[in-house]
């Protein structure tokens, strides 16, 4: 079999050549060099770095806060997407557009805004301070920042899935005697579950790598993984940084794989 099918359109060689060269120079070779760098470490050094209490603490915080943030986004994102797709209310188009704000807003801006808002003198923080709840400069602050930046993912992956839902199917369930709750739980949820999981995974992966907004809400002693890498770089501990980065990258690729699996899974009932 030929590697490329014949076509009357020109420019395949040129465009493909440019694409591959640029991709290699900018992305593939630099990323590969990172893996090479960590491969230059001995296995014991690598293991020591990765299982160092500081690293483990960062991994725990990163995964914990990212999971919590993605869960919050999955729950509220489902409600937001449902509301935006199914109901009509004043200002809906505006609300729909604003959902993308965390994509469009530079992370540093989101970071300082949230830090200010949830600080003990901030608009929200001051109501929580009397109860001993401090959000800015704590792990709760990390969670708030990660929730903010992951917010659009669940909404945006669920919207098309909800729009694709066949109204007839819900009517069929109703005509068979199912209550609205039974229809939601047994018919709608299983149908949109792959999209929900994809959105959850995207939000989770984004949260794992987030740096810009987190640094304003975190403290010196509770670092997320990207902050730890940054510190290691500042101290010229390149090998340590590379080792931690490789672990993070592998984790993100696993999430990516998971997303592809859910996509494939979601097509299994397609005609």
């Amino acid at each position: 079999m030929a590697l490329k099918q014949r076509s009357v359109l020109p420019g395949f060689g040129l465009t493909m050549g440019c694409t591959l060269s640029y991709l290699s120079l900018l992305v593939l070779i630099p990323l590969a060099s990172l893996f090479l760098k960590s491969a230059s470490m001995s296995w014991t050094d690598f293991w020591a770095t990765v299982t160092d209490p500081e690293t483990l603490g960062a991994i725990k915080l990163s995964f914990g806060a990212s999971l919590a943030a993605a869960t919050i986004n999955a729950i509220f994102g489902l409600i937001v997407a449902w509301t935006l797709v199914r109901y009509s209310f004043v200002g809906k188009k505006f609300i729909d557009a604003v959902v993308d704000l965390p994509f469009a807003m530079p992370t540093a801006v989101s970071g300082i805004a949230l830090a200010q808002l949830y600080s003990t003198e901030g608009w929200i923080g001051r109501w929580l301070a009397p109860y001993g709840i401090e959000i800015t400069y704590s792990r709760w602050g990390v969670m708030v920042a990660l929730t903010f930046i992951g917010l659009p993912f669940v909404v945006r992956t669920l919207q098309p899935a909800l729009e694709d839902l066949d109204i007839e199917v819900e009517e069929a369930a109703a005509s068979l005697g199912a209550t609205r709750w039974q229809t939601a739980w047994r018919v709608i949820l299983p149908t949109i579950l792959p999209a929900l999981l994809t959105g959850f995974a995207l939000a989770f992966a984004r949260a794992l790598g987030e740096y810009g907004s987190v640094i304003f809400l975190s403290n010196k002693w509770e670092k997320v993984i990207p902050m730890l890498i940054f510190t290691k770089l500042e101290q010229y501990e390149f090998a340590d940084a590379a080792a931690i980065a490789v672990v993070t990258l592998v984790a993100s690729f696993i999430v990516l794989l998971f997303i592809n699996l859910t996509q494939w899974w979601s097509r299994r009932y397609a005609a």
Binding site: V27, L28, L34, I225, P226, M227, A245, L249
Partner: peptide, 20 residues
Amino acid sequence: LIDLPYSVSPVIAGMIFVML
């Protein structure tokens, strides 16, 4: 592969160029 930079943390993105 084109999507790859989406799944790389910005810190790691910066770091690979520092290392090079």
